[in-house]
Design a protein around this nucleic acid. Sequence first.
DNA 1: TTATATTAAGTTTTT
DNA 2: CTTAATATAA
Length: 959
Amino acid sequence: MTEPTPNARQRELIEATEGIHVVDAGAGTGKTFAITRRYANLLREGYEPEDVLLVTFTNNAATEMKERVVARCDYSMSALRDAPISTFHSFCHNLLLEYGADAPSYLDIDDQITGSTQLLENEVIEADRFRTFLSQFVDAHPEHEAVFRVLNDPTALLELIRELAAKGVFPTVNGWYRDGEVSLDGDFETFEKLFAEANGPNEGANGATQSDLRDSLSGFERNRCFLPDAPSEDELRDSYPSIDDRWAEEAFMEDREALKEFVHDVYVEYIQFALRRNYLNFSFLQLFAFVLLCEDHALRESVAFKQVMVDEFQDTSEIQFKLALLLAETDNFCVVGDWKQSIYGFQYAAVENIRSFERRLREYKRELNGEHKRVDFPVEEVNTIPLRRNYRSTQSILDLSRHALTVSATGSESVDRTVKDIDGLEADTDREHSTIAAFTSESEHEAILDRIETIVDNDAYAVEDDSGDLRTPSYDDIAVLTRTRRFGRELQTKADECAVPVAYEGGVKLFETDQAILLLAWLRILDDEDSRRGWAVVLEQAGYTLAEVEQILETGAYPDAMVAFRERLTARESVGAIARQVFDRYGYDDAYASSLVALLQDVSDGTTRNFGGMIRFIERSLDAEATHEIDDNPGGDSITVQTIHAAKGLEHPIVIVANVNRYSFPPSGGGDDRIRYEDPIGLRQTKLSSTAHGRPHLYDNWRYRVLSACLGRDYDEERRLLYVAMTRAQDHLLFSAGAEPSPLFENLPLEPESVDPEIEAAGIDRTEQTRLQVSIPEPDVPAGQSPHALMDDRVFEDRDEGRGIEFGNRIHDFAERYAAGEGVEPAGEDEHRVRDFIDELEGELHVEEDAYLPVSVGEQEVTISGVIDLLCVTDEQVEIVDYKTDLTRDAEDEYRKQLSVYYHVVQRLYPDRPVSPSIFYTASGERVTVEPHSMTEISGLIERNRDDTIGEREEPQIR
DNA sequence: TTATATTAAGTTTTT
DNA sequence: CTTAATATAA
């Protein structure tokens, strides 16, 4: 790809190598391009790579940056290998490895970070360790009993610790680090303002009506039980239209000493627990790096950089902003981001970092310079560079996307921002061919698939190609973006049934796959502890009826083959090896299986055969709904389905924003954490344990009730998500909702069309499964047919007019070997013609390619398989050749069916070029191109064929 | 306009 | 189970 010339703004960024710069880099404005150019420019100006810190959001981004920098400067990839182009986390990791041994001592913790301290990456394992820690903790601290009882989910505490760490609140052994405690107490003055805002009277038709706060406190006592000190609803809502101001203080002021003590002790002791077990989590990495840089002035000054750049600044947390400041030696400080695309609040990203950059910068400098000067450069002058030219989308898409940031997300919410307040982007392209539309349907999944089918090959949805021309769209050009992962999975299932090619991208719940369930069952069998449960799964899976399974479990008369298999597993050394053998046995040879093997091998240290531990790990992973990135890209021409989060940074010619429904976008329900840390009210518990009425009981915390009524819910991030989704689109943008669209959908300036999908939602039961055969040695595969099964058998009679199958085989054999370049000599006229024919072909030749085509027939999923004689592939096209030794062309209609199957297989392999199936008649040297049947026709042919032979081709019986 | 009942959900994911 | 938005009754 040739790099374009930077525009004026980009050039400003590239050349502004001194001073503080905030780059407001809108979507698709060539941000990465400009950053890498700026980096290269710094090197050109004489900076060494080790002078320049460039922080990215992900490791992938770091690698990509390096690659792009290498392309623009004299340094090689290996020269930049150790350059500080990395994520905050890996920077901190390296820093601690090198200088961090005593970092814990600044928190008065004696344990050290040593060379053997590992980064614990798997959160399921960490949760497990945390649970272990917590049960010990409770035993050791009976004084915390009252707060501990309040917890419903112990791992929520771990999440709280992560949150505190991300916000720079750290414990020391005897208290809190620096002014951490102030944050925990919250800020009453700020809260008072929120209270006043929520409590301001509303404007009614005739005079003032009650405040939002008074309104939302109606039913204050319904379905809950407060401690006796709580005011009654009548007391609380005594005055009208606003409640009495004194309630602000009454609610805010609360004795939280016990709570703070509890959180403190859990926090600091968990850090100690982790250090003693030689591990750190991602949060502690940043925590210790910050403490180290804060306290060790000599070290900070020695590692500080002459240049600091932070990419994706809208996704940084408070602690990361502060880390960046500590790492800057001068005011050569450049942050790049787009507040409109800040969608990682749940990972404690703080939009304010970029939205109120200057204020935070000054605030943090003051804070960090408290008793020692740590940020030794002026922060008064900040230059803002807006990147507004968008190289991705059409103007109409960009114009609409601004509305996303101002739509109200509920029926009642009012957004106090208008479209005019949003800085718009300007499209680089003049083309204005975009279709922007919205549709609703009772059956949304089908409606989406239906729409996809109308888009593909439809010039009304033409998309711009690399050279700026319009071309016809294919599946590849379409992406369906969803708020929740669940909808994407559902859509994928539906698409499989309707034979629409889909590639789901993003994390997969690995432990919910058949593979994992089966493996878990076998581990249970091996473990003995819960072997009945394991056997039940395995037997049922093998096709035994429930009654039979019960009987086998009763008598313990397990099938011999299974017992033998168990013995073989027992001999295995490691869990990884066991997993591999199980998958081999069942014929699982896919990405899920190999990921499972790798993961289990990884978490089990590769050596232990601790089945109990492994079973627990899998169970925990199931509980936690843990997801794993699986490299399962089938390739080929297929639509992309992914979450909006996963799509960030990407672009697609055609985007369908799907599932914009009530309860889904924005998602309903809030967290039910019992201990929370919220700005500006600080640390709170939603329930209180007390024996006020004799028995211990969990009371609702009336103060929290009032406080949270003042905070309300903020839907800004949901709007930004919608914005991100919309700005992924290059050419066309569609929105889809079901029976109950979200206000986000209804309030967009669009006129939704209600559609009735025509795509047949044929309730196809997938029969595809792989079973353990107990008496049949071969694993059962999907009902298989060869393309010949499609054909009318009569055509084979007398086909070769006496030349025979033997003859045909010989010619095929010769053709295969000759095409493969084996240097065989032709014998006979047919073989000579084959040789001449092959010699004429230009392109890459593939012989005897296996072809599998899944076809939905009625309620069944059937896989047609066959062998393609010859494929000739060039950049422009792909030719399929099937040799026929027939003397006549009488059977051509039948052969057409066979070639059609090959055609569809090959077309999926090479979606970008035309595919032409043809027959080469060896008897005449004639080559005939065949018009392939459509998939629907093929499935019809199979059905007809099957009906003729009913009863003959039954599913292989199990057992 | 306000109080109560009903409803239908249960995120997102990188390090 | 819990939350919060909305429909409905008063």
